[in-house]
Design a protein around this nucleic acid. Sequence first.
DNA 1: TTAAGCATGTAATGAGTTACATGATTAG
DNA 2: CTAATCATGTAACTCATTACATGCTTAA
Lengths: 179, 179
Amino acid sequence: MSLPHAILTALLEKPSSGLELTRRFDKSIGYFWSATHQQIYRELGKLEQAGQIRALPAAQPTRGQKKEYEVLPAGRAELAAWVARPEDPRPVRDPLLLRLRAAGVVGGTGLREELERHLALHRRQLEQYREIEERDFAPERTVTEQDALRHMVLRGGIELESFWTKWLTETLAALPATP
Amino acid sequence: MSLPHAILTALLEKPSSGLELTRRFDKSIGYFWSATHQQIYRELGKLEQAGQIRALPAAQPTRGQKKEYEVLPAGRAELAAWVARPEDPRPVRDPLLLRLRAAGVVGGTGLREELERHLALHRRQLEQYREIEERDFAPERTVTEQDALRHMVLRGGIELESFWTKWLTETLAALPATP
DNA sequence: TTAAGCATGTAATGAGTTACATGATTAG
DNA sequence: CTAATCATGTAACTCATTACATGCTTAA
């Protein structure tokens, strides 16, 4: 769906090997798109076949040897076309909300602990995003339009985590003592 | 992953046929879990085979004839076990955030219109949730624990839509005039 | 009696996850 | 020279989406 476009974006920001991409998807890219290394290698193969990216000539293809990719004009064109294409927001599909609703009909033993665990996870994530924001997006350092866009994407991550911590806090407060 | 549990929850709240379930997934259930009718029929078949649900004896199985399902004890047990099982939050995978980041490298023609379109969609959804909240969860009407849980799930939907409208508004404000 | 739409389903494809396999490089 | 780890990949499976097929019911 959008994995190839995530990879094209990442490679345009900086040509990389499969493993480097994996690392970047675990870190900065991960706050708007996640992917495993298996997905990434598979997709790199497809994109190369489609003529949208190519391996840099330097290191050549034996297994186990690093292979750097860069985006070709066709890849850039495809990405630009995708950015311009309207696409509706995905319907929600959240297991935790579902579990809460299920707890309403079968009882929620241990649910409080689980909510607290999630709260801790989201708080930690929020902290990390805030650190990135302070480090990389101080007011005087955000100059180009690209900076502004990347900042707004990070704001998305921050506000999404804020939503979760807020909702989890309220829900814990509304939950009866030890259900 | 959680589709069978969504169906079990829905059927416990009210025994239904495949089409009725589809309707319910389009409406109230949709704010925490979405599913198409094809998914639902396939999963109903699996759940019946696994002995977790059964078709009510009344109407019998010819194609095109309504078939009502109810949950069996094994199904209720499976759902209770799933509710108690810890499960980490899913990593984020949002196409709109990705598109914004991509716009940073290939330019974002028409992006403003798309953001405004999404903003309108999320605002409308938020309105609908607020109406449901006023109608079904007035303070004096929320009495049982199940009511409280269902209300918190709806609050999740409301706050999630609030997040989107807030973030989209901020992003539109931060976006240069006509990129 | 035929067309509309209600209701259930199949098939094909694509996207994502889990488990495993294999070669290259480097530190001890 | 061998174990750890870096790096790239395959295979099998599950879940989701899209398109299509089939039978029943009812109202013009």
